[in-house]
């Protein structure tokens, strides 16, 4: 474990907590894409298949349970909770996430570290995580008013993967044979997808104006 990875995990945890806080306290999910939340639930479900078979550490297991629990409960809130679901913007959140899942699955079948169920699912979860934010970014472009919590949520979500890139660089130089091209490339693509959001987020923060993304 290195400081970059810990910072990445904590940032990722904060992004989930910010979202849960928003949904649980103000009982609203305005501006949040259910499609992205469902994709994240699928990412964690396919990535943590080994949660009960391969024990890495207490930290690893607890974090996996938190990410699984929070992502599924957010989907539950947005689908089932009578108050929260009312604030869900169904008309605007129209990204057909099936068109993200299928290519990721096909790519995982072709490009994986080992053609076993677990490894294909691992590769699938990495490719899917890289593109899972797209429905959310599309929704942000459409709904002009981005409230602070949603902006912070997306920002933290992007920052966590950026920290992970530093973690991979660090591990590459400090651990022999630490080479995971699939993880590195999908992590890089994922972070690049946030690039323009970061640009507008920093500008709005610097000029102290409300965050809005150009059409």
């Amino acid at each position: 474990m290195n400081i970059f990875r810990l910072a990445g995990d904590m940032t990722h945890l904060m992004s989930v907590l910010v979202l849960l806080l928003k949904i649980h306290t103000i009982k609203s999910c305005a501006g949040i894409s259910l499609k992205t939340q469902e994709l994240y639930a699928l990412v964690f479900a396919t990535r943590y298949l080994d949660i009960f078979t391969d024990f890495i550490s207490v930290y690893n297991t607890i974090m996996k349970l938190i990410f699984l629990g929070s992502s599924f409960s957010i989907v539950w809130y947005m689908r089932r909770h009578k108050l929260v679901r009312r604030s869900y913007d169904k008309e605007q959140d129209t990204f057909r996430h099936f068109f993200l899942v299928l290519p990721c699955l096909l790519l995982a079948l072709v490009m994986n570290e080992k053609f076993t169920f677990k490894e294909v699912m691992w590769a699938f979860s990495l490719y899917l995580e890289a593109v899972a934010i797209l429905p959310q970014l599309v929704l942000l472009q459409r709904t002009k008013n981005i409230d602070n919590l949603t902006g912070q949520y997306v920002f933290l979500l992007g920052a966590y993967r950026a920290f992970y890139i530093f973690n991979w660089i660090y591990r590459y130089f400090t651990e022999p044979h630490y080479v995971h091209w699939i993880t590195w490339i999908s992590g890089l693509v994922q972070t690049l997808l946030y690039a323009d959001f970061f640009y507008y987020y920093f500008n709005s923060w610097k000029n102290n104006v409300k965050l809005h993304l150009p059409a």
Binding site: D50, K118, Y164
Partner: peptide, 10 residues
């Protein structure tokens, strides 16, 4: 036999 890679990252 080739060791199964355990992915230790979240």
């Amino acid at each position: 036999e080739e060791k199964e890679t355990t992915h230790d990252e979240l």
